[in-house]
Design a protein around this nucleic acid. Structure first.
Length: 876
RNA sequence: GGGAGCGUGCCGGAAUUGGUAGACGGACUCGACUCAAAAUCGAGCGCCCUCGGGCAUGUGGGUUCGAGUCCCACCGCUCCCA
């Protein structure tokens, strides 16, 4: 940071003041607040309602550039839509439950509620400096009782609908955060999304929501979400992971003898490979393992099961891992051919997935193949690859479709047809059923932590799990709790809080001491914003009908599955409970890219060097050893010393520059490389506008009255009007459909360039029209500066209440155009021609041109292609 | 391995249905103003050139009067699922 302080570098102009963004922005922010400019107006008769929403933040206390980008994008959308005449709902709130508050409490002895409220105040103050048109009267914090009583109410609603239940299951345990996690909250490496710890498996009794009941709806309705990025829809579809297949029963037999009456049911997506099965595998913790283990194998099996309990799901199922397993010493019969098959247990089969049992078909499944090879199990090919003659060398499994062989009566069928045929045959005989299987698991919502929404359940020894009566909500989170971060749910230590009479029978009972996953709280906040002060219900049907679905939702791609899937599930479940008429919450979704900071890395040591220690950015050297540093752009983080503090940027250049820069530098979906030199450039543009408006004020522009255009326009007038109206048309286009703020701002720059130095030459009406349009087009992007301009040039009221400009097609009409002349597709010259010339005359003009003479050498062209308004292509 | 997306000057990035590739900005160079600097203003800025032009949108093919855009193959990067 060596540049001079920019606010000192704008010289005073004759007749005007200097552009001092800080003073100007604070002044307008005060004014807007006093005027209630950002208060939501209920839609009037015939007025469209528009709901613009940013994913609400966790109140960490510090605003970072990612937040700024997110909220500025949404703010521009909201502001444009208001100017276009819609009633706009643009609220903000706080995803305020969560572990950082609890950890702060453990480390510093503060109360999580106080810590959170302080952070909210701090972040709100930072947000306010950005000039966001947020209606703060609708603010929500999920940790406040007037919000979470309704989270509890909705939990009871789901419970009443049979969608919440308790079960004992093997679940993900985060050893750092000391709590369980939902499957969605464990990443591809088997680590917690929050703490980064490798999760462990534990068998615990927990609360779940039946999101799997909605697997089909969540998957099928993705097709309706045409306003969502394809990528996010694909990710959700993969996560839900629907596969069609069959359940097949294998009867258990005594060694060499009759069936025992027990059966093992497997799920397979490949019933066509049934003849190729050479063993059956159970999950190590499958309930039948005990009964099916022979005496000889008992000790080995017990040892194996103990080992498996210590491993994570990922460690067990990773494809590059050796497949461990051992035989139980008992057998089943393959129902399709009566052949006995050994029963094994193995690491790669999970009890919770499908039926917890699979059939092993080494020839046609890669994991089975590896397992069979390791344990010398037989391999039998039953699907032949197309065009393959004779037996396959089988260096690996053939997992594609083909033609059945060695499959009795099914030989010769294509594998796809065979799936149906073998399943149907099994159904006839009673040993198969066609079934759909999902990857999606039920949502585990219990958390063994304090700072969350209490689960409103009372456990009674005689009545079981009893919902807290709704009139007793909220079940308040007690303040005085000892937090250690260890040893189970903190609420469980509070005997006085825990002890309660059963609402059913009055007997001594105990409250549930787990809290809810914070994703519960964020699964419905967008509904509460529509009706934020309702004391009777979480929201009224009318308010929802008025505002929902969210027209434009903006947030990070990291929620592609997590929050966005849960919120969709809530919406569907509440629809089915009769509380909502919508089935999808978010009509359009914009996933904004990351904000990256310039990062200096020593390639030999891997050390990150702070920018402040780099003396020459053009030739960065490591002060430690003098070696050249790599310059990278990476996600801003403390460890990489590449963060840029939004407050510092605003202090230096003002919010308008920060807003303009962040929108201009990259399209919203792409990662953005933060570069201080470019911010400086953006600031220069705003200063240029400042001088332009100064100049306009000097010419006596007065925006309050609309002047009629003179009947005769000069050439300059017509050129400027064309520039103005083509900017309006282009910006309007950029802000419709696919949002392209970056090109919209470049159009503003072009317009400013077109006006520069010509203001004096314009007739008064054209000058006024141009300034009025420029300022209104600028208003959503740089709201403070636009307001200042509007006022200085005598506009009445706020520019933010002005209508969005619309372009005059007449102004775009040109008398003459540049006609490009191509010869065989290559540009050889151009010609100024009347804009309304028809095809024939264009052809004649082109043929008569010097360019044609030169390149055609007197020969008539073989072919002439005329694109009116653009070009003529002569093909010799 | 499967799926999705991307690849354009020194850099960020523009390019309706295929129709003048490089808009707009940054960096850089030169000039004006200045005692000087900053700021500002003006000009230049893909590569090669014998100044006619030739070559250029990851690579190689194809379709077309015409391809950054469409098709095929390949290379590289990112993300998701295995």
């Amino acid at each position: 940071m060596t540049a001079a302080t920019p606010s000192n570098s704008t010289p005073a102009q004759p007749g005007g003041q200097r552009y001092t963004p800080l003073e100007l922005e604070e002044r307008w922010q005060r004014q807007w607040k006093a005027d209630g400019l950002d208060r939501t107006e209920e839609p009037a008769e015939g007025q469209k309602a528009f709901y613009a929403l940013s994913m609400f933040p966790y109140p960490s206390g510090t605003l970072h550039m990612g937040h700024v980008r997110n909220y500025v994008i949404t703010d521009v959308i909201a502001r444009v839509q208001r100017m276009r005449g819609d009633a706009v709902l643009h609220p903000m709130g706080w995803d305020a439950f969560g572990l950082p508050a609890e950890n702060a409490a453990i480390e510093r002895g503060v109360n999580p509620a106080d810590w959170t409220d302080r952070n909210i105040a701090q972040m709100k103050a930072q947000l306010d400096r950005l000039g966001l048109s947020i209606d703060w009267e609708r603010e929500q914090a999920t940790c406040h009782t007037d919000y979470y009583r309704w989270t509890q109410w909705l939990f009871l609603e789901l419970e009443a609908g049979g969608l919440a239940y308790q079960k004992e299951a093997t679940v993900n345990w985060d050893p750092i955060d000391q709590t369980v996690l939902a499957n969605e909250q464990v990443d591809g490496d088997g680590r917690s999304w929050r703490s980064g710890a490798l999760v462990e498996q534990r068998k615990l009794r927990q609360w779940f929501l039946r999101i799997t009941d909605y697997a089909d709806a969540l998957l099928d309705d993705l097709d309706q979400l045409q306003g969502w990025p394809e990528r996010v829809r694909t990710m959700q579809a993969n996560w839900i992971g629907r596969s069609r297949g069959a359940e097949i029963d294998f009867a258990v037999v005594e060694p060499g003898g009759p069936t025992t009456g027990e059966r093992i049911t497997v799920f397979t997506t490949r019933p066509d490979t049934l003849y190729g099965a050479s063993y059956v595998v159970l999950a190590p913790d499958h309930p039948l393992v005990e009964a099916l283990t022979s005496e000889a194998q008992r000790d080995a099996v017990t040892a194996f099961r103990d080992l498996m309990e210590t491993l994570s799901q990922d460690e067990r199922t990773a494809e590059d891992q050796p497949k461990r397993g051992l035989p139980l010493g008992s057998h089943v019969i393959n129902p399709v051919n009566g052949e006995p098959l050994p029963i094994w247990i193995a690491d790669y089969v999970l009890a919770d997935y499908g039926t917890g049992a699979v059939m092993g078909v080494p020839a046609h499944d890669q994991r089975d193949f590896l397992f069979a090879r390791r344990h010398q199990l037989p391999l039998r090919q039953v699907v032949q690859a197309p065009g393959q003659e004779g037996p396959d060398p089988l260096g690996e499994a053939w997992t594609e479709a083909g033609v059945l062989v060695h499959s009795g009566r099914f030989d010769g069928l294509a594998s796809n047809d065979a799936k149906a045929a073998i399943t149907a045959f099994g159904e006839e005989q009673g040993w198969a059923r066609s079934r759909v299987q999902y990857r999606l698991r039920d949502w585990l919502i219990s958390r063994q932590r304090y700072w969350g929404c209490p689960i409103p359940i009372i456990h009674c020894p005689s009545c079981g799990a009893v919902p807290v009566p709704r009139e007793q909500l909220p079940v308040e989170l007690p303040r005085a709790v000892e937090l250690s971060g260890r040893g189970g749910s903190p609420l469980a230590q509070l005997e006085s809080w825990k002890a309660v009479a059963c609402p059913c029978c009055g007997a001594d009972a105990q409250r549930e001491t787990d809290t809810m996953d914070t994703f519960m709280c964020s699964s419905w906040y967008f509904l509460r914003f529509a009706d934020p002060r309702n004391q009777e219900k979480p929201f009224s049907a009318e308010a929802i009908a008025r505002w929902l679905p969210v027209q434009h939702y903006v947030g990070g791609i990291e929620h592609a599955i997590l929050h966005l899937l849960y919120a969709r599930f809530f919406t569907k479940a509440l629809h089915d409970r009769g509380l909502l008429t919508i089935r999808e919450p978010f009509q359009r979704l914009l996933t904004q890219g990351m904000v990256q900071g310039v990062t200096y890395r020593n390639p030999s040591t891997g050390r990150y060097v702070p920018g402040t220690q780099v003396s020459d950015p053009a030739d960065p050297r490591d002060p430690a050893d003098g070696s050249r540093l790599e310059i990278l752009f990476e996600k801003m983080s403390k460890s990489k010393h590449n963060g840029v503090d939004p407050a510092a940027v605003i202090d230096r250049y003002g919010a308008d520059t920060a807003r303009m820069f962040i929108l201009f530098k990259a399209p919203p979906e792409k990662d953005l490389e933060w570069d201080d030199a470019d911010v400086e450039g953006q600031f220069r543009f705003l200063q240029r506008l400042w001088r332009l408006v100064d100049q306009a004020a000097g010419c006596g522009v007065a925006l309050q009255a609309i002047l009629p255009l003179p009947s005769e326009l000069t050439t300059v007038d017509r050129d400027v009007r064309r520039a103005v109206h083509s900017a309006i048309a282009a910006i309007d286009e950029d802000l419709s459909g696919e949002l392209q703020f970056n090109t919209a701002i470049s159009e503003l720059m072009k317009l400013a360039n077109a006006l520069g130095g010509r203001l004096e030459q314009l007739s008064e009406a054209v000058r006024q029209e141009a300034l009025s349009a420029l300022i209104r087009l600028l208003a959503p992007f740089a709201p403070h500066l636009a307001e200042e301009f509007w006022q200085r040039l005598g506009g009445s009221g706020s520019v933010h209440r002005e209508p969005w400009p619309s372009h005059d097609p007449e102004a775009l009409v040109q008398d003459s155009i540049e006609l490009v002349i191509q010869v065989k597709g290559k540009v050889r010259g151009s010609l100024t021609v009347p804009a309304d010339a028809d095809r024939d005359s264009l052809e004649q003009l082109a043929l008569a041109s010097d360019v044609a003479q030169k390149w055609l050498e007197g020969q008539p062209p073989r072919r002439v292609i005329v694109v009116p308004g653009k070009l003529v292509n002569l093909v010799p």
